[in-house]
C-alpha cells in the first residue's frame, strides 16, 4: 500500500482521501459485524442446551429447541428428575457432592506440591536441575489413559519388588476410594502446574532473592515470605486450570473411585441415557447442572486466570 506511505506525516492524516475514508469505515463496520457474528455463533450452542434443558422431554424428542420462540413450553421436571430421583438415571445431587469432595483436594494438593517443586527448580542450585525440569515438562504428554491401569494396580496391589512389599495394598472401599481419586488427579495435574509456575518464578527479580538471602533468610523462609506472595496470581491461574480439569474429568473419577457411590458428575453424564440410549432427553438438564459451576467460577476468576498464565509464559 504505497499510497498510504505518502500521506502527511503530521498525526492522523488531515485530509483523508475519500477512498481511504470509505475503506476505513467499511473495515470498521466489517470488524463490528465479524465480532458480532463470532460472539453469536459461539453462544448459540450453549444457549440451545440451556433452552433444551427447560423443555418437556417429549418436545425435545419431537422438535428443535428454536421452536420455543414460536411455541413456548417450559418445565423444570427434567431438572427435578435428574437431581433428585432415586433412579439410576437421576439423583445427580449425590454426584454433585462427590464432585465437590473430589475437587477441593484435587486442586489444593497438586498446586501446593507444584509450587514447592517449581521453587526448587528455579531458585535452588543443584546438579541436574535443568534435566529434571525438562523431564517434567515432557511428562505433560503422557496420555493419562495409559497411566490408568498401572496406577490402579499400584493402589489395589501395592508395590512389590520380588516378595518384598515396599508398599502394601491400600484396600480402600466405598467412599474412602475418593482418596485414590485425589492422588490420581494430583499426579496428572503436576506437570502442567510445575511448568507454568516454574516459568513464572524464574521471572522474579533475582535482586529481591539476593537481598533476602543476604538478610539471612533460609530457602524455606524465602519460599514462604518472598516467593509465595509474589506468585499468587500464577497460583490462582493454575488453581483455576486444575479446578476446571478436575471438575470436568470423566475418566479418573470412574476409574479410581469405588463405583456408583463415588462417581463424579461428569462421569455419570454419559451413562444417564440408559441401556439403549433412550433417555438422552435428560442429558441437557444434566449437562447444564454439570457445567454451570465451572462456568460461573471461570467467568468470575477470568482476570486472575489470564494474568497468571500470561505473566508466566510470555517471555521467550
Amino acid at each position: 500500500m504505497s499510497t498510504d506511505m505518502q500521506t502527511p506525516v503530521q498525526g492522523r492524516p488531515i485530509a483523508e482521501s475519500r477512498g481511504d475514508r470509505i475503506r476505513r469505515v467499511l473495515s470498521s463496520r466489517f470488524a463490528s459485524i465479524f465480532a458480532l457474528v463470532i460472539a453469536v455463533l459461539w453462544t448459540i450452542p450453549t444457549a440451545g442446551l440451556f433452552i433444551s434443558s427447560l423443555r418437556p422431554e417429549d418436545d425435545i424428542r419431537a422438535s428443535g429447541w428454536w421452536t420455543v420462540f414460536t411455541d413456548p413450553s417450559f418445565t423444570l421436571d427434567t431438572y427435578n428428575y435428574v437431581l433428585y430421583s432415586d433412579s439410576q438415571g437421576g439423583g445427580l445431587i449425590r454426584n454433585l457432592v462427590n464432585t465437590i469432595v473430589i475437587t477441593i483436594p484435587g486442586v489444593l494438593v497438586p498446586v501446593a506440591f507444584a509450587a514447592m517443586a517449581a521453587y526448587a527448580l528455579s531458585w535452588i542450585d543443584f546438579k541436574g536441575r535443568n534435566l529434571l525440569y525438562i523431564a517434567i515438562f515432557a511428562l505433560q504428554v503422557v496420555p493419562l489413559q495409559m497411566a490408568l491401569i498401572p496406577l490402579l494396580s499400584f493402589f489395589s496391589q501395592g508395590l512389590h519388588i520380588g516378595d518384598l512389599a515396599i508398599m502394601p495394598a491400600w484396600n480402600l472401599s466405598g467412599v474412602n476410594t475418593i482418596v485414590q481419586v485425589w492422588i490420581a488427579h494430583s499426579i496428572f495435574g503436576l506437570p502442567l502446574a510445575i511448568f507454568l509456575l516454574h516459568n513464572f518464578m524464574r521471572e522474579l527479580p533475582s535482586d529481591v532473592m539476593e537481598a533476602a538471602r543476604i538478610d539471612g533468610a533460609s530457602h524455606s523462609q524465602i519460599f514462604r515470605k518472598v516467593v509465595l506472595p509474589l506468585v499468587t496470581p500464577a497460583i490462582a491461574s493454575i488453581a483455576i486450570f486444575q479446578f476446571l480439569w478436575v471438575w470436568n474429568d470423566f475418566l479418573v473419577g470412574r476409574t479410581f473411585g469405588g463405583g456408583e457411590a463415588t462417581r463424579p458428575l461428569t462421569a455419570v453424564l454419559g451413562d444417564m441415557a440408559g441401556t439403549w440410549g433412550f433417555g438422552w432427553t435428560r442429558l441437557p438438564a444434566a449437562a447444564f447442572i454439570a457445567i454451570i459451576v465451572p462456568l460461573v467460577v471461570f467467568l468470575l476468576l477470568q482476570r486472575y486466570f489470564v494474568r497468571g498464565l500470561l505473566a508466566g509464559s510470555v517471555k521467550g
Binding site: 470436568n248 474429568d249 470423566f250 461428569t266 454439570a290 457445567i291 462456568l295
Partner: peptide, 8 residues
Amino acid sequence: PMGISFVG
C-alpha cells in the same frame, strides 16, 4: 465454552 467439559 472453555469451562465446559468435553462430555458436556
